[in-house]
C-alpha cells in the first residue's frame, strides 16, 4: 500500500477492507439474537408511536374517561390514572416523546459533534486546542446535572430538553470522532489523496467519515437510550415536557404517589421505559460487536 502511487490510490479512495467490513458486520448482527430481539421490539415501539399520531384508544389528555385509579380492564387495558385518563393512550403518546427525544438528541449530537470532531482532528491547531479544552473542562462533570441546569434556565419544553441533552452529548461524540480522525489522517490512503490535492472537505466527508462510521454509529446508538433516560429523569422531577403531554418519566412520577392503591400506574411506564432502554442497549451491544474493530478479536 505504501508504495502505491498516489494517483492510483486517489482513484479508489475507500480503504479496501470497507466493503467486507459492512457485510461482515451485517452477518454478525443477524446472528446476534439479543440484538435482533431488541430491534424487533424497537420496531414495535416505533409502530405504536406512529399509530398514536392518528389514533389512540381514548384522547390522551381527556380527564375522567373512567373512574380514577381503576385497575386494568377490557375497556382500559392498563387502567386509569389519578385523574381518570386512559393509561394505555398516554403510554402510546409517551413513546412518541421518548423516541423524539432519543433520536432527536442524537441527530443534533451528530450534526454538532461529528463536524467539530472531524475539524479538530484534521486541522488540529488552535481549533483543536479550544475544543479539547472545552471537552476536558466538562469531563468529570455529570452530564445530567449540566442538562438539568440548562433545562432549569431555559424552561421545560420538548425542544429545550433536546437542546439541553445535546449540549452535553456532543462532547463525547466530538471526542470520539476527533480520535478516529487523528489516527485515520495518518493512514496511507488518506495521505495519498491529500498529496493528490483533494480538498479537506472531500477528504473528511469522502474518506475519513466513511471509515469512522462504525464507532460513530455505535456511539449514537448508545446515546439514544441515554437521552431517553435523561428525559424520563427530568420529567420525573417535573422539569420535563409540560403537561398534559405525557412522558414515561412523568407518568411514573405521578404513579408513584399512588403506588399503594394502583401499582399499575407506575409499573406500566416503568416497564415500557426499561424495555425500550434495554432494547437499545442490546442493539448497541450487537452493533459494537459487529462494527467496532477495537472490540474485534
Amino acid at each position: 500500500m505504501a508504495a502505491t502511487p498516489a494517483t492510483v490510490v486517489a482513484a479508489e479512495p475507500i480503504a479496501p477492507a470497507q466493503a467486507s467490513l459492512w457485510s461482515d458486520a451485517w452477518r454478525k448482527l443477524r446472528r446476534n439474537r439479543l440484538a435482533l430481539g431488541g430491534a424487533v421490539y424497537l420496531t414495535l415501539v416505533v409502530v405504536v408511536a406512529l399509530t398514536a399520531l392518528v389514533w389512540t384508544p381514548y384522547p390522551m389528555a381527556e380527564v375522567g374517561v373512567g373512574i380514577p385509579y381503576s385497575a386494568p380492564s377490557l375497556q382500559h387495558w392498563l387502567g386509569l390514572d389519578t385523574i381518570g385518563r386512559d393509561v394505555l393512550s398516554r403510554l402510546m403518546v409517551g413513546a412518541q416523546v421518548s423516541l423524539l427525544v432519543g433520536v432527536g438528541t442524537q441527530l443534533v449530537v451528530l450534526a454538532i459533534g461529528v463536524p467539530i470532531g472531524l475539524a479538530a482532528g484534521y486541522f488540529r491547531g488552535v481549533f483543536d486546542q479550544v475544543t479539547t479544552f472545552v471537552i476536558n473542562l466538562f469531563y468529570g462533570v455529570p452530564n445530567l446535572l449540566v442538562a438539568l441546569i440548562l433545562v432549569f434556565l431555559l424552561g421545560p419544553s420538548l425542544t429545550n430538553i433536546i437542546v439541553a441533552i445535546a449540549a452535553t452529548g456532543w462532547m463525547d461524540m466530538a471526542r470520539l470522532v476527533r480520535g478516529q480522525t487523528l489516527s485515520l489522517r495518518e493512514r496511507d490512503f488518506i495521505e495519498a489523496s491529500r498529496a493528490a490535492g483533494a480538498r479537506p472537505a472531500k477528504i473528511l466527508f469522502g474518506h475519513v467519515l466513511p471509515n469512522a462510521l462504525g464507532p460513530i454509529i455505535v456511539q449514537a446508538t448508545f446515546g439514544v437510550p441515554a437521552a431517553i433516560l435523561f428525559e424520563a429523569f427530568m420529567s420525573f422531577l417535573g422539569l420535563g415536557v409540560p403537561p398534559p403531554m405525557p412522558s414515561w418519566g412523568s407518568m411514573a412520577a405521578d404513579g408513584i404517589t399512588a403506588i399503594r392503591i394502583a401499582a399499575n400506574l407506575v409499573i406500566a411506564p416503568a416497564v415500557a421505559l426499561s424495555l425500550t432502554l434495554m432494547a437499545f442497549n442490546f442493539v448497541g451491544d450487537g452493533l459494537r460487536d459487529a462494527l467496532d474493530p477495537r472490540q474485534r478479536r
Binding site: L34, A232, F233, A270, S274, F280, N281, F282
Partner: peptide, 11 residues
C-alpha cells in the same frame, strides 16, 4: 447485567 444497566435507578 444488561438488564441491570438498562433499568433506570428510579425504576
Amino acid at each position: 447485567s444488561v438488564i441491570g444497566y438498562s433499568m433506570p435507578n428510579f425504576v
